[in-house]
Simulated assay, not measured.
Amino acid sequence: MDTAGILCLALLLDAAFGEPDWLWSRLPHPAVLMGRAVGWLDTNLNRGQYLLARGTLALALLITGAALTGWLIAQLGPWAEAIAAAILLAQKSLVQHVRAVADALRRSTAEGRTAVAMIVGRDTANMDDPAIARAAIESAAENLSDGVTAPAFWFLLFGLPGMAVYKAVNTADSMIGYRTPRHERFGKSAARLDDVLNLIPARLTSFLIALLHGLLPRWREIVAEARRHRSPNAGWPEAALARAIDTALSGPRAYHGRMQDFPWVHPDGNRHPGPQAIEAATRILWQVWAVLTASSAALALVG
């Protein structure tokens, strides 16, 4: 079985089984192990002088460990590689977490806030229903790229080692890639490399959404808004998804008690989305997954 065939199998396995509680309640998830490794490196290397160099060294050690682990698992055969890849993909779990916000929001605003707090980093205590829905949809767009398209893309190019390296860098960025006094310099290499690794997948995700929903004639608008976004990559799938479901995204929101006036994405769209808009977004997640799966199957057949 070639790399494309293994990827197709991994995408199917992830869609079928997701992240079963019976397994990960007994064993640490690979993402948890990566997080522990990043935490250990942060604790032991993020001190003293030359923090940028120390952070780069920490990232190099993390990448080496991830690549080696991926290579060793791949030596066990295609099924082992496919199962490991399925574990590192996040399609089904992403859909479940996003859809849980819609279900909670139907019950009450308070439950919606609790559910969306599980998947976003912004302040949720004072969110109204539209803000909750927007946050869930934005998380769906960004994590479709980070959790599905990007891992699949790097697996297709470099097999399980490539996917493992991507996930390790992405984990490091989520933990130390912030402009805080502690991590401004130490986490800079992780943040920059994560931006580079997501450069193509974010744009690919945006293109697939636009293609599936007849938005290619409006591609220039998507590009313009993506370039205005605070993130070099997250704005691409967000701008396409906003138009696909005709919903205004982004806009003002609070972080750590401070309101920030971010520009709207697709400002002419519906500014009062609810559970139905969230569910429309989850359907698009499955549509993009279907294209990725069919494409990998086609590549496997050609190969």
Score class of each variant (00 low, 15 high):
R122K: 15
T124A: 07
N126Q: 13
A131F: 00
A131Y: 00
I132A: 02
I132S: 03
R134T: 05
R134G: 01
A135W: 04
A136M: 01
A136S: 11
S139A: 10
A140V: 07
L144H: 00
G147H: 02
G147F: 01
V148P: 05
V148N: 04
V148F: 04
P151D: 01
A152I: 07
A152Q: 06
A152F: 10
W154R: 00
F158Q: 00
G159K: 00
P161E: 00
P161A: 00
M163H: 01
A164T: 07
A164W: 03
Y166N: 04
Y166S: 00
V169L: 02
N170G: 00
N170E: 02
T171P: 09
A172G: 15
D173E: 12
I176R: 03
I176Q: 02
G177Y: 06
G177S: 09
Y178V: 03
Y178G: 02
T180L: 08
P181F: 02
H183D: 12
H183T: 14
E184S: 05
F186H: 05
F186Y: 11
K188Y: 13
A190R: 11
A191I: 10
L193C: 09
D194E: 13
L197I: 03
L197K: 00
L197M: 14
L199E: 06
I200N: 02
I200R: 01
P201Q: 12
P201H: 13
A202Y: 15
T205Q: 06
T205P: 09
T205R: 04
F207E: 04
L208I: 12
L208K: 01
I209M: 07
L211A: 14
L211S: 14
L212Q: 11
L212G: 13
H213F: 13
G214Y: 07
G214T: 10
L215D: 12
R218C: 08
W219Y: 04
W219S: 04
E221F: 03
E221P: 04
I222G: 06
V223W: 05
A224E: 13
A226G: 15
R227V: 03
R228K: 12
R228S: 11
R228N: 12
R228V: 06
R230P: 03
S231T: 14
S231R: 09
S231I: 11
S231G: 08
P232I: 10
N233L: 14
N233R: 14
N233Q: 10
A234V: 14
A234I: 11
G235D: 10
W236H: 15
E238M: 15
E238K: 07
E238D: 10
A240S: 14
L241P: 07
A242T: 08
A244Q: 12
I245Q: 08
T247G: 04
A248L: 10
L249Q: 07
S250I: 09
S250P: 05
G251H: 04
G251R: 04
G251A: 08
P252H: 09
R253T: 12
Y255A: 05
Y255I: 08
Y255F: 14
H256W: 13
H256S: 13
H256I: 10
G257Y: 09
R258S: 11
M259W: 14
M259T: 15
D261H: 15
D261A: 15
